[in-house]
Design a protein around this nucleic acid. Structure first.
Lengths: 121, 121
DNA sequence: CCTCCATGCCTCAGAGTTACAGGTATTTGA
DNA sequence: TCAAATACCTGTAACTCTGAGGCATGGAGG
């Protein structure tokens, strides 16, 4: 019955891709990112803090992001920014996403292509 | 260094989606499916037998597929077919894929949409 | 004749990511 | 005064794919 508790379909790697892309547009802090993901996907996707925070920590330790602590009205925020290395990683991730999306679209909408064999000439 | 051994990005659930879609077009056996996935995705994706066989067994036990054994030239093949229930599942899976793909595309290509608040009037 | 490769089925351990529930602390509004 | 929003954090469980391996038959080439 229960749909699927963990590892929902098609979302593997998506949080990382979205975080990198959104942070490339402007620096943000974790709590803000969680909400911005909901907003920017038109409410199609939502990732909890339990997904985003560990991800941010991992990306920072990899050198993909840098973190800067800020005090705002008595509250602390950790603002993240994409490094040069992170931009390279984003480009690769986006390319890989496109590759997968093309593949799936081919099969879903592409009907039954005949087997191509380009011939040597 | 090593790219990523397991859990490649964006592929979670994709084998199931492709298997259902390809079997909807025509019944196939496991070994054939492994090759057909490579072909029909234009060599963009490839899933090993260690992924496909357990998946077929699971889908059969769920009632999504039916299996029929055939003897062909001394070799045995297990040919799978999508059940009515499986077609429903495929429709749901495809819809869910579209939802995710739209969300990611929105963020990747959609630039920086301003926050919409449709206003009650 | 014998060997290698393709066919065709199968299983298992390992790796990696997300979900969910829970924890802490401050500020704001009712 | 109390609840909710803000803002950070962690750990466990769950799930799927990878890669390597095993078994057996048939056909092609030396």
């Amino acid at each position: 019955m229960a749909k699927r508790r963990t590892n929902p379909d098609y979302l593997n790697g998506v949080p990382e891709l979205l975080v990198l892309r959104l942070l490339e547009q402007r620096p943000m802090y974790g709590y803000e990112l969680v909400q911005e993901i909901v907003r920017s996907t038109g409410e199609r996707l939502e990732f909890g803090e339990g997904c985003i925070y560990p991800l941010l920590h991992r990306l920072e330790s990899e050198g993909t992001l840098t973190a800067k602590r800020q005090q705002v009205g008595g509250r602390e925020r950790v603002v993240y920014r994409v490094t040069r290395k992170g931009k390279g990683k984003l480009a690769e991730a986006a390319a890989q996403w496109m590759r997968v999306a093309e593949a799936v679209t081919l099969v879903l909408h592409g009907g039954n292509n005949e087997q191509r064999q380009p011939a040597i000439a």
